[in-house]
């Protein structure tokens, strides 16, 4: 039985990730409406709840146009490459511990010792999809958007990789479950690594192409950026991938810096182990939902960067800050021990 647990968890996690996308689209539209003193979608179903289903059906029933000037196979392949890493990345993400059949089981698909490295490696595959779609579209807007996006994602991957190093040094392991355990036994990561957390959150916005870093799309100047020439479900697949990546980024921020599935005081309440563990998983979900709201909040609060400001901020501010964070962590740890 135990050997099937990873596959059961895989099914549950895949369904969670897939169903979270329509929910997030609705939440984003509703919250955007409220923040701009509008009501958001209200027509489809009660309170606009069926809007995402209507969107999905509409996308599916639209004509799948392949324009004659595109590089055909690359053009079809690119959106698939956007969705693939979005689902492949959940392979090492733990979401909690459950007591099943008297044993503590970690809710995770593959128990590998390279955790964070795997997440960083797989999530950076998105840049290929953007570059391929931009190049294959044979369109000026697409190419400009794709180039900007590729350079932006590469630039922000460096501070992202550096910002996690402090946490890894404190914990001494790349496993995400070890990092959560460390935070459970002491304090949340944001207390240990405030600067690292800040840099990681900023770079997570840049890596998911969200405002204020959405220069790839910049609809006012580039029409749609790299997906200008896409239609029907191929167009929707870019958003499917993007929203899944947003969810993954929120989960990663929670696991690394907000204590993962740690809920304060719940361990001292002498509950049944399973009850306590379910509360902890719900706590993780609640933190992730807050971060998703935070993504939308920031979208309507901060204006878009100019491109030179974006690159200068990444290379000249974030990288030195992240390096300083690593050095300070190393020196403080040496003094303390």
């Amino acid at each position: 039985m135990e050997i099937f647990y990873p596959y059961i968890f895989m099914g549950i996690l895949l369904v969670t990730w897939l169903t979270s996308v329509p929910v997030m689209v609705l939440v984003e539209r509703k919250v955007s409406g409220w923040l701009q003193y509008r009501v958001g979608p209200t027509r489809v179903g009660p309170w606009g709840l069926l809007q995402p289903i209507a969107d999905a059906l509409k996308f599916l029933s639209k004509e799948d146009v392949v324009p004659h000037h595109v590089n055909k196979w690359l053009y079809i392949f690119a959106p698939a490459l956007m969705v693939f890493p979005a689902f492949f990345v959940i392979g090492v993400i733990p979401v909690g511990i459950l007591t099943l059949g008297g044993k503590e089981i970690l809710v995770q698909i593959g128990h590998t010792n390279i955790g964070i490295l795997y997440v960083l490696a797989v999530s950076s595959l998105v840049v290929y999809s953007i570059t391929f779609s931009a190049w294959a579209s044979n369109n000026k807007y697409s190419l400009l958007g794709g180039l900007r996006s590729a350079a932006q994602m590469m630039s922000y991957e460096l501070p992202m990789g550096l910002s996690i190093l402090g946490t890894i040094m404190l914990v001494g392991s790349l496993r995400l479950e070890d990092i959560v355990n460390f935070q459970m036994n002491s304090a949340w990561g944001i207390v240990w690594q405030p600067l690292g957390a800040l840099i990681f959150i900023v770079t997570a916005f840049a890596e998911t192409n969200r405002l204020p870093f959405d220069l790839a799309e910049a609809e006012a100047e580039l029409v749609g950026g790299y997906h200008t020439e896409y239609s029907s479900m191929k167009f929707a697949m870019f958003f499917l991938g993007e929203y899944c990546n947003m969810l993954t980024a929120s989960v990663m921020i929670t696991l690394l810096f907000l204590g993962g599935w740690n809920v304060p005081f719940v361990q001292g309440m002498n509950l049944e182990p399973l009850t306590q563990q379910v509360i902890q998983i719900a706590g993780l979900a609640l933190k992730v939902v807050f971060l998703m709201f935070f993504f939308v909040w920031v979208r309507w609060t901060l204006p878009r960067f100019r491109y030179d400001q974006l690159m200068n901020f990444g290379w000249k501010t974030l990288i030195p800050l992240a390096l300083a964070n690593v050095v300070i962590t190393a020196i403080v740890m040496a003094i303390v021990s």
Binding site: P6, L14, F84, A86, F87, I109, G110, T112
Partner: peptide, 12 residues
């Protein structure tokens, strides 16, 4: 430990 990740790769 890596077999489920291989399966996930195929599903993804």
């Amino acid at each position: 430990n890596y077999l489920p990740i291989l399966v996930l790769m195929i599903v993804a």
